[in-house]
């Protein structure tokens, strides 16, 4: 049983005011998103409809602490079909962003952020790669792009993650 005495009535408004979250309150629970979802097709632990409905009920902990929130592949199959015009994938992403702000960021994302801070790209370009590129006739590429770190430092993203 879910005890709605624990619900946070502000939660849905917090999400609805974020970019991508604007359609949240339009949801009438038809579950076209879940039926369209390729992840839900293979793993019932992930269900976009449930995330949306729990958000509407103000069940903040259930939504934010769930590891399955991060299962969304951001494929937009749901966005295309939602009869209420909700940008479902963007909505789920808005909830993810909110979860990060609240201190629930999976380690994988933190690692990716570290890589981008260090190199500006996800994969290290080793000398071996550059030689291979040269050998097959591809132009050289930058090993690192320090400007990315500058952008990351200019926003709140690092502060938020340290929380």
């Amino acid at each position: 049983m879910i005890d709605l005495r624990k619900s946070d009535p502000q939660f849905k408004w917090e999400i609805a005011k974020r970019e991508g979250g604007e359609g949240l309150l339009k949801c009438f629970g038809c579950s076209d998103c879940a039926a369209s979802c390729p992840v839900r097709y293979f793993d019932e632990r992930y269900n976009p409809r449930k995330i949306i409905r729990f958000t509407l009920l103000g069940m903040k902990d259930i939504v934010l602490k769930s590891p399955f929130l991060w299962f969304c592949a951001h494929c937009h199959a749901c966005t295309e079909r939602c009869p209420q015009g909700i940008r479902v994938a963007e909505l789920i992403n808005a909830i993810k962003n909110y979860a990060v702000e609240q201190g629930y960021c999976p380690d994988g994302y933190k690692m990716q952020l570290d890589l981008l801070m260090k190199m500006g790209r996800l994969y290290e370009v080793e000398d071996f790669d550059l030689k291979k590129r040269q050998r097959i006739g591809l132009p050289p590429i930058d090993k690192t792009i320090p400007e990315v770190a500058k952008i990351l430092e200019s926003t709140d993203i690092l502060k938020v993650l340290k929380k």
């Binding site: 951001h74 993810k96 960021c105 994302y109 952020l113």
Partner: peptide, 9 residues
């Protein structure tokens, strides 16, 4: 890769 963490960044 940053979108899920912070869409704006």
């Amino acid at each position: 890769p940053l979108k899920a963490v912070d869409a704006e960044t």
